[in-house]
């Protein structure tokens, strides 16, 4: 297949005319539009609309953070690393609630 024949094929295809839309086409589309659930058309989204749109992602991200924290807590506890609560207890025992304290 040479380049000129390919060009001839494209040229012939370019001249083809598309079928005309039927006269009731716009009315059919409008009927379909009326069957659609209500759509926000004006493009002005409130903060709640935007949060609503983002909700699945925010919920997933929050769940991932909670799972990560719980796993880390279990992991660190199992490894014997003192957690933040232990540290606070130690500080209060040493400095705040002993006879040496205030």
């Amino acid at each position: 297949m040479n380049e000129n024949k390919l060009k001839q094929l494209f040229e012939s295809a370019r001249m083809e005319t598309a079928p005309a839309p039927p006269p009731e086409f716009a009315a059919d589309v409008l009927r379909a539009v009326h069957r659609e659930p209500p759509t926000k058309l004006n493009g002005r989204f409130s903060i709640f609309d935007q949060l609503n749109l983002l909700f699945p992602r925010i919920a997933l991200a929050a769940a991932a953070v909670v799972i990560l924290c719980v796993t880390a807590d279990f992991g660190l506890t199992a490894a014997g690393v003192p957690d933040l609560g232990d540290g606070m207890l130690q500080i209060s025992a040493q400095w705040l609630l002993t006879p040496n304290g205030f």
């Binding site: 086409f25 059919d28 379909a32 539009v33 759509t39 926000k40 058309l41 004006n42 493009g43 989204f45």
Partner: peptide, 12 residues
């Protein structure tokens, strides 16, 4: 028709 419905849904 599908094209125009998509346009309608995304008009905002």
């Amino acid at each position: 028709q599908e094209t125009f419905l998509k346009a309608w849904r995304a008009l905002a």
